[in-house]
Write a protein that binds this DNA or RNA. Structure first.
Lengths: 139, 139
DNA sequence: ACAAAAAGATACAAAAATAGTATCATAATA
DNA sequence: TATTATGATACTATTTTTGTATCTTTTTGT
């Protein structure tokens, strides 16, 4: 049972890295070096994030990726939905079809409740909150 | 992302069925009929539950299965641990080895917190609580 | 003793999800 | 127009989940 797949994990780490660095854009190659993950896999993930609208990309020399919105605005659920969508703890599927017991399933209601809370908590985690290492005492 | 696999789902339904019926024991064949699931798969699940200590079994004519403890004492986590163990939202594994970032992973702490709460909630769900259809007003 | 009815053990197989590779096309820019 | 970057897409490998198949053992009634 994994809440977070490697796709999502890599994506989050890449987003953090992109958010943290000073240059305008950062290339896939440079990300591979700092993140130590398979280049083709990361490239695919970056492409997916771009298509999903979380990243800008520019081609050619000095091209690369940058965030489209601030790190505060990117939640963990945003990323999870891209790679693992939809977020359901409860699938209630039976060979592509709805489970025949879905209407009177006694487990479903209980799991649904837990699911709501999990999603709320995941939504509270943003790229910004992941990056922030310590609470700033001056704030 | 599934919190509960079919193994666990079938097992829970079987346990409910065993808990609810009046006879001392119930055979795999009778369970198959009332639960409508593949016989060999259910048999394997029943065997696993027996090995795990949740069921008693008796062979031969009029043999079958019964609970070893009361439905109140069987939690959802008990069953999940048998079929999906261990319950972790966060695996932090990288090709069988610990993820190299495990010590300073900023996501881990946050997910671990969520995990604790999820597990606590799953622990509160028992076979008895699943069976109980309505709150008894006389209580 | 022995046949029938049950569970036990175990090995195998199919399907789905996850993880990753490889290759060629396209665009920007010096 | 060569180089350096991403875009698109098809393919492959691995792991997990979901089953199936087959044979053995035990119990019980006759």
């Amino acid at each position: 049972m994994k809440l977070i797949t490697r796709n999502t994990d890599y994506a989050v780490r890449a987003l953090c890295c992109i958010a943290e660095q000073k240059q305008e854009v950062i290339s896939a190659d440079r990300l591979v070096k700092s993140l130590d993950m398979p280049r083709p896999f990361l490239r695919k993930i970056l492409q997916t994030l771009t298509k999903a609208g979380l990243l800008n990309s520019s081609k050619g020399k000095d091209g690369g990726f940058s965030l489209t919105v601030s790190p505060e605005e990117i939640t963990l659920t945003d990323v999870m939905e891209i790679f693992q969508a939809p977020i359901r703890l409860n699938e209630c599927k039976f060979k592509k079809n709805d489970c025949p017991y879905i209407s009177d399933c006694l487990l479903k209601g209980k799991i649904d409740e837990i699911e709501k809370e999990v999603i709320a908590k995941l939504k509270a985690i943003t790229i910004a909150s992941i990056i922030k290492k310590e609470v700033n005492v001056d704030d």
